[in-house]
C-alpha cells in the first residue's frame, strides 16, 4: 500500500530516519518482521528493498511506520531523496518474528551497524511487556566510528546497559563488538539469558562461533537480497545445516529473517 512520508531526515552521514503514515489496515509488525519499500513511480530501481521495522505507532485513523536506514546503493539513495508528502510503497509486514519470553532473566542484544534498527524495535517490545519489568536488557552495539552509532540515545533509554565498540576507538571499546561481548559471555547463563543479534554476516558468523557448544538461546536476523519478499521467487535463500552436511535452503523472507543461530550453515 502507498504511504505518505512525514519525515525523511538525515540523522548522521549517510543514515536516515524515515517516518511514513499508512492506512490503519496495515498490520502491526512483530519485532524482526520487515517491510518492502519502493518509490512507486519508478521502474529503476525496480524491486522493493527490505527494511526491518524500527518504530511503529497506531492511532485510530492511521498507523506510522519508522525505518532507520543507511544509504548503500541505488535503492537506498532514491529513498533518501524522497521528501515530506511524497508517496512511498510499503508492503508487509513480512517474515518470521523473533521469539520473545516475558520471563527471561537477562536479554542481550548484539548489533553491528544498521542492524541496530530491528534490534531497537525488539528491545522496545521487551520493555513494553508488562511481565518483563524485571528483565534486564543489555545491549552491545558496534559501528565503524562514533558518528555511526546511530540511534544510541534511544537504545540507552530502553536498555539498562549499553556497551559500544568502534573500529577507530572513537566510542567505547576499540575493536569488534563480538570481542567486547566475548569478555562478558560467561555472565549470560544458558537457562536464564536470551541473545538476539543483527548485523553484518561476518559479525553473526563470529557470534555463532562464540555461542557454539553453549546451549544459550540465540536468534539472529539474516539479510539477503530479495525480489518478492513473500516466498515466491526463491531468490533470498540462505543455507541451513541439515545434519547431512549438504545444506538445505531456507527463504529469508518466509522461514526467516529470524533464525536460530545454530541452524545457519556459514559456508
Amino acid at each position: 500500500m502507498n504511504g505518505k512520508i512525514v519525515k525523511n531526515q538525515q540523522i548522521s552521514a549517510g543514515h536516515f530516519l524515515l517516518r511514513v503514515t499508512l492506512a490503519e489496515s496495515f498490520k502491526t509488525p512483530m519485532p524482526g518482521q520487515f517491510v518492502m519499500m519502493r518509490d512507486p513511480g519508478r521502474i529503476d530501481p525496480l524491486l522493493g528493498r527490505p527494511f526491518g521495522v524500527y518504530g511503529f505507532e497506531r492511532s485510530q485513523e492511521e498507523v506510522t511506520v519508522e525505518i532507520l536506514y543507511k544509504v548503500v546503493g541505488k535503492g537506498t539513495l532514491v529513498l533518501s531523496r524522497l521528501r515530506e508528502s511524497d508517496f512511498v510503497e510499503v508492503l508487509g509486514p513480512y517474515g518470521r518474528a523473533f521469539d520473545t519470553y516475558p520471563e527471561a532473566g537477562k536479554v542481550v542484544f548484539i548489533c553491528g551497524g544498521i542492524g541496530v534498527a530491528p534490534i531497537t524495535y525488539l528491545a522496545q517490545h521487551y520493555r513494553s511487556l508488562a511481565a518483563a519489568r524485571d528483565v534486564e536488557l543489555i545491549c552491545y552495539y558496534g559501528a565503524s566510528k562514533a558518528e555511526n552509532l546511530v540511534g544510541i540515545e534511544k537504545l540507552k533509554r530502553i536498555c539498562s546497559r549499553v556497551f559500544t565498540s568502534t573500529d577507530d576507538g572513537s566510542h567505547g571499546f576499540q575493536g569488534l563488538i563480538t570481542e567486547r561481548f566475548s569478555a562478558d559471555i560467561s555472565s549470560y547463563a544458558a537457562g536464564s539469558s536470551k541473545i538476539y543479534a543483527c548485523g553484518p554476516r561476518s559479525m553473526l558468523k563470529e557470534l555463532s562461533e562464540l555461542v557454539a557448544g553453549n546451549s544459550v538461546f540465540c536468534q539472529i536476523l539474516m539479510e539477503e537480497r530479495m525480489a518478492c519478499g513473500i516466498g515466491a521467487c526463491l531468490g533470498c535463500t540462505v543455507l541451513l545445516k541439515d545434519g547431512g552436511g549438504r545444506g538445505e535452503h531456507a527463504r529469508v523472507c518466509m522461514e526467516g529473517p529470524v533464525f536460530n543461530i545454530g541452524d545457519i550453515h556459514w559456508g
Partner: peptide
C-alpha cells in the same frame, strides 16, 4: 536444491 546464494541481483529496469 537449486543454486547457492546470492541468487538474484537487480540491474537497470530488470533483475
Amino acid at each position: 536444491a537449486g543454486n547457492k546464494p546470492p541468487r538474484i541481483m537487480e540491474t537497470p529496469c530488470g533483475m
